Amino acid sequence: MFHDLGSALAGLGSPALAIVLFTVAVRLLLHPLYRAAVRGEKAKAELAPEIRKLNKRYGKDLQKLSQETQKVYKKAGVSMFAGILPMLATIPFFMVMYRLVTTPNPLLDGTLFGFSLGTHFTSGYAWVFLVLFALLAVVAFVTVRWQKAQVGPDAPQVPFARFLRVLPYGTVLVAAWLPLAAGLYLLTTTSWTIAERALLYRILS
């Protein structure tokens, strides 16, 4: 399957460009799910002040807290899992993309600036990886800043908050262990993610 798909994409011309375009095509296909996820997240965010009040009032009574929280969501017509289920539906698509850019196939036989898309950073020095890491770090920085702006200074601290803030930078470490093709895919999809979410948060009411 992945060999045939890789052959078809490689036949379009530049394999590197094919990875970018195919990633964009998949993200466009998944766009309705992301719209649903953002709508759910925004709906839950509007209820956040009321949920915080419940936490202060019933924090020691978890059963009562759960019951009252469910009442708030039900009254507002919002699912407690809003924003989560649409994202779970995207997992199979990303599994396909991951296998495509990591499983040997004709697509990985292509090159980017003279370097094979199947090359690993750990297999030898290649300046193109340093550029890739820098771009991934920039995208991660923008993502963290945007997430921080959405949360706001008055939001309560959540468990593992520091870990969540550095999590986007994990793409750099992942790219260091995967083929160049996978790094190119990560750069494309993470850039698309932050741009898409920022736009949806702005235009969706």
Rank of each mutant, 00 (worst) to 15 (best):
A16F: 07
A181M: 02
W146T: 14
F160Q: 13
Q63A: 10
F160P: 09
A137W: 02
A140S: 05
D4T: 14
L29D: 08
T143E: 11
A82H: 03
A182H: 05
R197L: 10
I203T: 11
L164I: 14
A155I: 01
P153Y: 01
A175W: 01
L30F: 05
L200V: 04
L173V: 11
K53I: 10
K74G: 06
Q63Y: 02
V78T: 10
A155H: 00
A82Y: 04
M80N: 12
E41R: 10
F2I: 04
A134S: 06
G170N: 00
Q157P: 12
L47D: 04
G170H: 01
M80I: 13
L132A: 00
T102E: 08
L65Y: 00
Y125W: 13
K148M: 06
V151N: 12
D4V: 10
L117F: 00
Q157V: 11
T193A: 15
L33H: 03
V24F: 11
W146Q: 15
T119N: 15
I194D: 09
R99D: 10
R52V: 15
W146A: 14
R99Y: 12
E50V: 11
L54M: 06
Y169K: 02
N55A: 14
H120F: 15
P168T: 03
F93A: 12
D154Y: 03
L85E: 13
R35I: 09
L107T: 08
I19Q: 04
A16K: 02
V139F: 07
A89W: 03
V72T: 10
N105S: 05
F129K: 07
I194L: 09
H31F: 14
F163C: 06
Y125K: 14
T193N: 15
P179G: 02
A45D: 11
T189H: 06
Y125M: 11
A140K: 00
T143G: 07
F2S: 04
T193V: 13
T188Q: 07
L12Y: 08
G170Q: 00
A25Q: 08
F115H: 15
V158A: 14
R145D: 05
V101N: 00
S123G: 15
F115M: 15
I203A: 09
A140E: 03
S79I: 04
